[in-house]
């Protein structure tokens, strides 16, 4: 069942109302509204879409259609820290798979999710980053970590968490 109302805590979320007020003042459209939502929440929470859909009497599917068309919108919160795993052949052969699993395990990422529950980390993968000689390669917040091992991966996570987590 869809939840067309803002549920739980976010019911009392003033932020939506502020966004709504701004939207009405600016005479905005769906895109600018989504941009405002994303600015406030960091992504487009499902609840907010249904909430605005009701408030403005615009079908939720219109929001969803627009949000999935433009590359700028994220429908899931992205972590504060972005870990990118190289999935090129060399990295794969050198065992990036088990390391990715280990990282996902440490961050308690369920199947199909890319961002940890506390919102601190997002784990993504890319095609070959062209640094095969130091495979497996991971990129943590734009810094390249080469010759990764399971032990070093935990260290990397901890380091990033300490450095930026606060």
């Amino acid at each position: 069942m869809p939840q067309p109302v803002l549920k739980g805590e976010s019911m009392t979320d003033k932020r939506c109302e502020e966004v709504l007020e701004k939207h009405q003042k600016e005479k905005g459209n769906i895109i600018s509204l989504l941009q405002n939502i994303q600015e406030v929440f960091g992504y487009i929470p499902e609840d907010t879409v249904f909430w605005f859909s009701r408030e403005l009497n615009i079908p939720a599917s219109s929001f969803y259609g627009v949000a999935t068309f433009y590359a700028q919108f994220y429908l899931k919160p992205r972590g504060k820290n972005i870990i990118t795993a190289c999935c090129g052949t060399a990295c794969h052969v050198k065992g990036s798979g088990p390391i990715i699993n280990k990282i996902r395990e440490e961050l308690k990422l369920p199947e199909g999710e890319t961002t940890s529950k506390d919102g601190k980390f997002t784990v993504e993968s890319v095609a070959c980053v062209g640094a095969c000689s130091i495979a497996p390669v991971f990129i943590g917040n734009k810094k390249v970590f080469g010759k990764m091992t399971i032990e070093k991966a935990s260290e990397m996570l901890k380091g990033i968490d300490k450095g930026k987590g606060a």
């Binding site: 069942m1 869809p2 067309p4 499902e46 879409v49 249904f50 859909s53 615009i58 079908p59 939720a60 599917s61 219109s62 929001f63 969803y64 259609g65 999935t68 068309f69 429908l75």
Partner: peptide, 28 residues
């Protein structure tokens, strides 16, 4: 003018769907 479904996504992966791919119910 029910707005139940809309094209979602872009390019090769675009397809008609409901908001957030929710099941169709009497609400939407």
């Amino acid at each position: 003018m029910a707005g139940t479904i809309e094209l979602t996504g872009r390019g090769f992966n675009s397809m008609p769907d409901t908001a957030f791919k929710k099941p169709r119910t009497l609400e939407n």
